[in-house]
Design a protein around this nucleic acid. Structure first.
Lengths: 236, 236
DNA sequence: ACCTGAACACCGTTCAAGT
DNA sequence: ACCTGAACACCGTTCAAGT
């Protein structure tokens, strides 16, 4: 948390003459993160970021080789906010600990939507992210899953948590969007009986966290079932 | 499937004099879909699409008001490829039918990655997509879930399926990417014991469908548990 | 060593003009 | 009615130049 990005140290150490940098990689990444969370990666512009920071556009390239690298750094920054749960055994069953971890990540995702949006498209290999992976896989192995199943279950949990963030944040932004209501209206209850029956619950759940909570419970219950089954049949 | 987009009919009906359109909305959307699936929405360019079709760039705007509308149409096209399972009762339990539906959507997603990538950011309200929703929600109500839970469970299943597509397709493209291997190597088994233990399974699972399969089974098992519980306690 | 401004090769889209 | 080309207001990034 608040950890300095790796290259800052190197940068500060090897300066000798001349003016020193007026910014740090972290300061730039943090400002970019705020913009990314609020407006998305398409809206973030090198020119606008530079303006906000009161520097020339090209000065940014002294800290990051490309816009892509800048986004990477911003995403890593968001990932370091996820707190790892206490050590195994200290705070409940593997199930409770995994649920805590997922909830922690979900909350971080709501604070930083860019985390979910970009994690799907770029490998997230920051130390913080790797520690989350390690902790989660460890808990799944504790539960009694095989190596193969532990990896798959970890991915399923990650997919669910980040996907839920994506849904929650994109629905709350685009809920009242172009034409959606009209098209809804034009489709009768005859054609879509089930959807008509739950229409109220559908709109009530827009942007909510119910899908995350229910899905997480269901996933963990299902994983537990599988772990019990594996243990009983001596798969491990 | 292969259904003509709504405005084509209107367009064809009301022509009277002059040259007739040389293309259809569907033809353009289909070509765009191919590019979107292969290269993503950032690479798709109005200029390049027009070139491939042998038309001037601005002619595209006679069929779609914007690039965004074009992408919408392409995504809808992909969504119509998802076959609905046979009617309730005809082909097994609600669980099997939901699993079929999810697998169907997953397969369509692998064929058309853009489906997952864009569904998260834009509401998908095409008739085909709405029918999928209706069928899935209906099955969940059959299972005995409350309206509220059925909506949440549907979303969880959708999140899992589309998220798994995203993971599978983005991992297979970026698996061997910049620096990931090195950073992996620099982190010792001391710091990340669990991840080191399953390293082989991790790389073996890259881009694979195991996470989807395991997650789907677990989710459905968990949902069944909840439905049984709800029924036993007269929640419905 | 650090920062800048002009310039390059792109975008999506507007608009006036061609047939 | 359908299509086009030039032009506008943007991008990310290169490069030569300033201090």
């Amino acid at each position: 948390l608040q950890k300095r990005l790796p290259s800052d140290d190197a940068r500060l150490r090897k300066r000798k003459p001349g003016p020193r940098p007026r910014f740090t990689r972290e300061a730039l990444a943090r400002r970019a993160l705020a913009i990314l969370d609020e407006h998305g990666s398409e809206t973030l512009t090198m020119r606008m970021l530079a303006d906000e920071l009161g520097m020339g556009t090209m000065a940014l390239y002294r800290y990051f080789p490309s816009k892509d690298a800048l986004i990477d750094a911003a995403v890593d920054l968001a990932a370091t906010e996820v707190e790892l749960p206490a050590h195994a055994g200290e705070s409940g069953s593997w199930k409770e600990q995994l649920a805590d971890l997922a909830r922690e990540l979900f909350a971080a995702g709501l604070r930083h939507p860019v985390l979910a949006r970009e994690r799907f498209s770029r490998p997230l290999q920051s130390p913080g992210a790797l520690q989350i992976t390690d902790r989660a896989v460890g808990l799944l192995l504790d539960a009694g899953l095989s190596n193969e199943d532990a990896v798959a279950a970890f991915k399923a949990l990650l997919i669910h948590t980040l996907g839920a963030v994506w849904f929650a944040t994109s629905e709350s932004r685009t809920a009242v969007r172009r034409g959606a209501a009209e098209r809804h209206g034009s489709l009768s209850a005859d054609e879509l009986p089930a959807k008509a029956a739950v229409a109220d619950e559908f709109t009530a759940a827009l942007g909510g966290a119910q899908a995350f909570t229910l899905g997480l419970d269901a996933l963990l219950d299902g994983i537990e079932l599988r772990a019990r089954h594996a243990r009983r049949h001596g798969r491990r």
